[in-house]
Computed example of a mutant assay.
Amino acid sequence: MVLSIFGKRIVVTGAGQGIGRALALRLSKFGGKVIAVSRTQKHLDTLFQEDPKIEIITADLADWESTRAAIEGAGRIDLLVNNAAAARLDRFLDVKPDDVDVLFNVNLKSVINVSQVAAKSMIATGNGGSIVNISSQASQAALKDHAVYCATKAALDQLTRVMALELGPHNIRVNAVNPTVVMTDMGRVGWNDPEKAASMTSKIPLGRFAEVDEVVDAVVYLLSNRSSMINGVTLPIDGGFLAT
């Protein structure tokens, strides 16, 4: 399958670890000119050591102005993956104002900010582009202790649809992927208790969590020309969790 990744300038946020890191490495392997964004310098340094072709930008996505300046300074943007996210888990009755501010700033507001810069760049080149937002099954399923996180991801899904509607006439496609628990290093630590894991996998028809590459494969497809008529979708990568 030939992919239209080679030579494209691709911004990946939250690229220091997990899905974002794997995406940056895969897209670079396919010949993309990856600009990796993270707030943690040491993670970017090790990413650059692993693949020196990847450009790195240190930015705190919760800071609108500094992030905007950093992304604008990256030059032309052809493709974008909004992967960065924050999570604070607590019972609804214990949610604090700071939890709401932090999660909405990172999980939604930063997506608007970075996507505005990227979309304006895509429009200026006249070549269109593709944006993929990393959402979650939590956007469509209520999860205990995830009140604010679920709300941010539900908002991200609707933002994805509006972006697809408004940017489509510029030949810019916008889609989201909605994974279940993903076996990143953090995911393995968080779900290594067999009893805790079983409480979730028992609701997944395939009976297991997602592997990082299974999310990366879907995102690469949505970025590429092989999905040229797919716009405004929220794609579950959940083994059937949302189908039950």
Score class of each variant (00 low, 15 high):
L3Y: 09
F6I: 12
K8V: 14
R9D: 11
V12Q: 08
T13G: 11
G14V: 03
A22N: 04
L23C: 06
L25T: 02
L27M: 05
L27W: 05
G31V: 07
K33P: 02
A36E: 12
A36F: 12
R39N: 09
T40L: 09
H43D: 13
L44H: 09
D45T: 12
T46P: 04
E50G: 05
I56W: 02
T58L: 09
D60M: 06
T67H: 02
A69G: 14
A74D: 04
L79E: 05
L79N: 01
V81N: 12
N82R: 14
A86G: 07
D90R: 14
V95A: 10
K96Q: 11
F104E: 09
V106S: 10
L108A: 03
S110I: 08
S121M: 07
I123M: 15
Q140P: 02
L143Q: 10
D145K: 06
V148H: 04
Y149P: 00
A151G: 11
K153T: 07
A154E: 07
Q158P: 00
M163R: 02
R173Y: 08
V174M: 08
T180R: 00
V181Y: 02
M183P: 07
M186H: 10
V189G: 14
G190Y: 01
W191K: 01
A197L: 00
M200Y: 05
M200H: 03
T201N: 01
S202A: 03
K203G: 01
I204D: 00
P205Y: 14
L206C: 05
V212Q: 08
V212S: 09
D213R: 06
D213Q: 10
V215G: 02
V216G: 03
S224A: 08
R226K: 13
S227G: 14
M229I: 13
V233L: 13
D238W: 00
G239S: 10
L242A: 01
